[in-house]
Design a protein around this nucleic acid. Structure first.
Length: 753
RNA sequence: GGGCACAUAGCUCAGCGGUAGAGCGCUGCAUUCACAUUGCAGAUGCCGGGGGUUCAAAUCCCUCUGUGCCCACCA
């Protein structure tokens, strides 16, 4: 054996050896209960980060432990298409070429992103390998694989049949110039100075003691014609008296009721708000709470619609000035604050984005969320650390209907279809055969274009609220166009444990479902874990896993969140290169004990590089001693007791205790405790004390005990530091009972007592 | 505004009712010995402040202060 352990020499070849041996693929044995973990699929276009490292380290420990205990063990890998995030990344690339998403029709854009992702996917897979993850590659799944999207669409179909799906209005960032919606994270915010108008609303049925007007401050006078209500804060003593009273609309003269809602800040402006539910997120929420009408005032082209009467057709920005002038003429403007500064939303092209209410697809969660909380409450699904249960409970109790449609191309297209003859008002944007972008309602467009041409160049389709639709996995007829929205990523990944195993009829599904442990970062407890439980219960009646272990967030060395802009991002590959994967894994595991957030433990990683070398040298010493002795030595066996010294008995007892403790710790997801216990035993009991005492002895029994300690230490360590232990295992063949056996599939230690 | 967590040795953290712990760092000493990616020895703490429960509190309860994060958020 070499004098020191050099991880560069072993990691790659050992991984290959494991993989080729078939050790990662479980043998289905109906008589045994399998142990199953579905790997939370990393983003297909992303790079490995420290969080992934921790995740893989923890899951690999559990998997290797159970595998060594002889259970059929499946760890199923995959990657996620990460809809919005990936599309944004790709569009950044497009921008470098002077293009954007509007340069392509839907299908072409999708195909381009597909190719882009394919290139990166191999990167992620390579990194999972590098970590030593003993995943079953033969079962690898991608969220956009046809067998997965099929299951996801079928679920949608079933939910629609069960009356759990509806189309409803939702607030969305819409850019009239681009003709499309943008996700919240795509929006840029800019400080801007705009006039703040103080507008007078004449009070209806005014009493003598009351003022003539109520005054409202707004930067947006242009949608006043659709406004139907004002609001004040009910806690506001001065103004709550107006609740239930009416004012007249300064533009149309119609009556507007005043309502009370906590949203209103009594200290801002005049403490009275005009509500424009269709074009402001807050107002929209208020309107939903109070059941107010939600009426849009703008067209998809960014002009005032026909409700604006004489003003209809004006662009929003012009309308603001024109309407402000009109109000001024009527004497209904009290004052204008020209220096008002606020933030506005801009799309990537720099256009002003209009918050707009557009129809979206929703899932009714009322019936789904209750059982999903019940299983956790009853302990059928256990959450570790236990205090995270409260987060889950809170989320489940407050969860509201889930908007599942995204205005992205990169995702699973919603299998809903609109008949063009029954929905003439659908807005369509497409690229015609000459490469020109056409926009308009479908009935107008059809006057000039064929269904085929529209379908081929289709970019987006917006069917008004109340449009007739059919849900179908295939095209229901010639005169149909498919919904252009895609599913929220969490809608598909929420079905991941089911979909990856081939729900509902495959052998895998029947044998491996429900899975054993879901291990993931706590930040997606509500986004992801809750959805998986909901879908699992809805489709199979069983929760998709028994235990949920939530690991903490790995923060940067300075204790702050890692971020590109702070420049404190840690690249795990540098640590793998320098210290080896084993050291990185072990360092992360012992960096924190119980799922709390923690800073990247750089010192510990270095420490465990040294520990890997310690293991190597303990083995080297044992092997050399054995070879020097130069005759066969029997194995330690309860049935044939040998004469032991006090030190022998003590350390064997310690090993037994250690084995029991490790089993207990791992069973309770106490990874750091388990790792530390083994570390202390190997370094301080075995190496520092026992080996030193062996050096003074010349009896065979010392060697028998030493070999027993080494072999069992390697086994206990293997789940934590798989490479160095397997490398040593190969070196100490002469010491082993079964020289052909690999450590990865060797039996887990049994206490002698 | 609602919630969760954390405050212990110079640093990073474990311990969570019975005499203060680890790793790194620090101070000595050891060196052809399996390993200098080493060994041995050592120093370092009013366990955030205040109150309470208890024979006994870093550990349980209350409160204050500070920090991090999650959710909801300004016409």
């Amino acid at each position: 054996m070499d004098k020191a352990y050099d991880h560069h020499k072993y990691e790659e070849s050992i991984y290959k050896m494991w993989e080729e041996s078939g050790a990662f693929t479980p043998k289905i044995d109906e008589g045994k209960k399998p142990f199953v973990i579905i790997l939370p699929p990393p983003n297909a276009s992303g790079k490995m980060h420290t969080g992934n490292v921790l995740m893989i380290a923890i899951e690999d420990i559990l998997i290797r432990w159970h595998r060594m205990m002889g259970e059929p063990t499946l760890w199923l890998p995959g990657s996620d298409h990460a809809g919005t995030e990936t599309q944004i990344t790709y569009e950044r690339e497009l921008k470098k070429e002077g293009k954007s998403r509007f340069s392509f029709d839907r299908q072409t854009l999708y195909d381009n992103i597909w190719n882009f992702v394919q290139n990166n996917k191999s990167l992620v897979i390579g990194q999972i390998r590098k970590m030593g993850a003993s995943v079953d590659w033969s079962r690898f799944k991608f969220t956009l694989d046809p067998e997965i999207t099929n299951i996801v669409c079928q679920t949608f179909e079933k939910m629609a049949a069960d009356n759990l799906v509806y189309r409803g209005d939702n607030m969305i960032n819409y850019c009239p110039n681009c003709g499309t919606t943008y996700a919240d994270i795509e929006i840029e915010h800019e400080e801007r100075n705009d006039p703040l108008y103080y507008i007078r609303y004449p009070l209806v049925n005014k009493k003598v003691t009351e003022p003539e007007y109520l005054v409202v401050a707004t930067v947006r006078p242009e949608p006043i014609f659709i406004d139907t209500h004002l609001a004040v804060n009910p806690e506001d003593k001065k103004r709550s008296v107006w609740i239930g009273r009416k004012v007249s609309n300064p533009l149309t003269g119609g009556e507007m009721e005043i309502i009370g809602d906590e949203m209103v800040d009594p200290k801002f402006g005049t403490g009275i708000v005009k509500l424009t539910p269709a074009h402001d997120e807050n107002d929209f929420q208020v309107a939903k709470r109070h059941g107010l009408p939600i009426v849009s005032g703008f067209t998809m082209e960014g002009r005032l619609n026909d409700k604006a009467g004489e003003f209809s057709g004006l662009k929003i920005s012009e309308a603001r000035k024109v309407i402000a002038e009109r109000l001024k003429d009527k004497g209904l403007i009290e004052k204008i604050d020209e220096s008002y500064s606020h933030t506005i939303s801009l799309c990537k092209a720099g256009h002003v984005v209009e918050p707009t209410v557009l129809p979206n697809w929703f899932i009714k969660v009322e019936q789904l969320k209750k059982p999903a909380w019940e299983v956790v409450k009853k302990g059928e699904v256990r959450i570790y650390p236990t205090w995270r249960k409260i987060t889950y409970q809170r989320w489940m109790e407050t969860m509201h209907d889930w908007a599942i449609s995204r205005q992205n191309v990169w995702g699973i297209r919603i299998p809903a279809w609109y008949n063009v003859d029954e929905n003439k008002e659908m807005a369509v944007t497409f690229i015609n055969s000459e490469g020109k972008t056409e926009k308009g309602t479908v009935d107008k467009i059809l006057e000039a274009y064929s269904m085929e041409e529209i379908n081929k160049g289709l970019q987006t389709l917006t069917a008004p609220t109340g449009s007739k639709y059919q849900i179908s996995l295939t095209k229901p007829g010639e005169r149909f166009l498919q919904e252009t929205n895609t599913f929220d990523t969490w809608f598909s990944s929420g079905q991941w444990p089911l979909a990856t195993l081939g729900y509902p009829n495959s052998d895998d599904f029947k044998y491996f479902y429900p899975t054993s442990v879901m291990e993931t970062g706590w930040e997606i407890l509500s986004k992801w874990v809750s959805r998986m439980i909901m879908f699992g219960l809805y489709l199979t009646g069983k929760p998709p896993f028994e235990d949920v272990y939530l690991h903490g967030i790995v923060k940067a060395l300075d204790g702050r969140k890692m971020s590109k802009s702070l420049g404190n991002v840690i690249n795990p590959e540098e640590y793998i290169e320098q210290f080896g994967v084993d050291a990185l894994r072990m360092g992360m595991i012992l960096g924190t004990a119980n799922g709390k957030d923690f800073n990247f433990p750089r010192d510990k990683v270095l420490g465990f590089r040294n520990f890997a070398n310690k293991i190597w040298n303990v083995s080297r010493f044992t092997l050399m001693t054995y070879e020097k002795y130069n005759q066969p030595v029997p194995y330690l066996d309860k049935a044939r007791p040998i004469k032991m010294l006090q030190t022998d008995r003590e350390i064997i007892e310690k090993l037994d205790t250690l084995t029991k403790n490790v089993n207990r710790y791992l069973g309770n997801f106490r990874f750091a405790d388990a790792g530390e216990a083994i570390y202390n035993f190997v370094w301080h009991d075995l190496a520092d004390k026992y080996i030193e005492s062996v050096k003074m002895r010349d009896d065979e029994n010392a060697l028998i005990v030493l070999r027993h300690l080494l072999i069992n230490s390697l086994k206990l360590l293997h789940p934590f530091m798989p490479f160095v232990t397997e490398a040593v295992w190969a070196e100490i063949k002469p010491l082993r009972m079964y020289p052909d056996e690999m450590l990865i599939t060797a039996g887990w230690p049994q206490p002698l007592s």
